[in-house]
């Protein structure tokens, strides 16, 4: 599904190149749950941004669903966002002026999904994540964990084939974090959604089935997780 070949990213200042990513080559298949790990400043977030087409690599090629997407125009990129990619953020990034319902509805509106279809999908998601009662609240009336649930629901609304999550539990308490990770695992297992997450935590990384370890912009280690485990039923 994703094919990275020799991706490099550097910034030059006063003629000196500062590398953020070097020689990153990897393939991610449909249905994988990949955790990108590494210390601060190792380039893991940049890699995720490149995967999300939010940044362009300075060098190298990036194929998404068999198509070269190394540099895309706005129209094509937004087509991909509407149909294939869902984002989940550390700071949730819900739109403060919209209710829970409206936040989940927004991507469907951009995708021009019909109103009855929209209503049923949102109802489904609210039900699934157990936040029906909260649908008319605004983000600042929810706890962090609840906000992140809404964030995930919003990412799933367009039924994407891949979810890119940047430290999805970074701002949460451990109990809530665990809940979110289990949810990711379930989505991956039961619905076959490809998930790529950036994380600091070893424990969170174990929910996935593959870990990419990055240091100083280079992939140091690419290994399957030791004991795939189901941490209880959600």
């Amino acid at each position: 599904m994703i094919e990275l070949k020799n991706i490099e990213k550097y910034y030059s200042s006063k003629g000196i190149k500062h590398y953020v990513l070097r020689h990153v080559t990897t393939t991610i298949k449909q249905g994988e749950f990949v955790s990108i790990m590494g210390p601060s400043g190792s380039g893991k977030s940049t890699l995720l941004n490149i995967l999300g087409m939010l940044e362009e690599p300075t060098y190298g090629t990036f194929e998404f669903l068999g198509e070269d997407v190394t540099s895309l125009n706005e129209r094509k990129r937004i087509e991909l966002y509407r149909n294939h990619i869902g984002f989940v953020f550390q700071a949730y990034h819900l739109i403060d002026e919209m209710t829970v319902y409206e936040n989940i509805e927004a991507p469907l509106l951009y995708k021009k999904v019909g109103s009855s279809e929209r209503a049923s999908r949102i109802a489904n998601l609210l039900d699934k994540f157990n936040i029906v009662a909260k649908k008319d609240l605004f983000p600042n009336q929810l706890s962090g964990g609840q906000q992140q649930l809404v964030g995930i629901a919003r990412a799933l609304a367009t039924q994407p084939s891949i979810i890119l999550a940047d430290e999805p539990t970074g701002n949460l308490q451990s109990a809530q974090a665990e809940e979110i990770m289990q949810l990711f695992q379930k989505l991956n297992k039961e619905e076959g959604i490809t998930i790529i997450q950036v994380t600091h935590s070893e424990k969170n990384a174990t929910y996935g089935n593959r870990i990419l370890n990055i240091q100083d912009g280079v992939i140091k280690e690419d290994s399957p997780t030791q004991a795939p485990q189901m941490g209880g039923v959600v």
Binding site: G52, L54, E74, R75, I78, E79, Y81, R82, F87, H93, L94, I95, D96, E97, A106, P107, Y110, K111, R154, T158
Partner: peptide, 12 residues
């Protein structure tokens, strides 16, 4: 923030 989010949600 609203602008950033909307852009990644697929808004032109």
């Amino acid at each position: 923030k609203e602008v950033g989010v909307k852009k990644v949600l697929g808004c032109y």
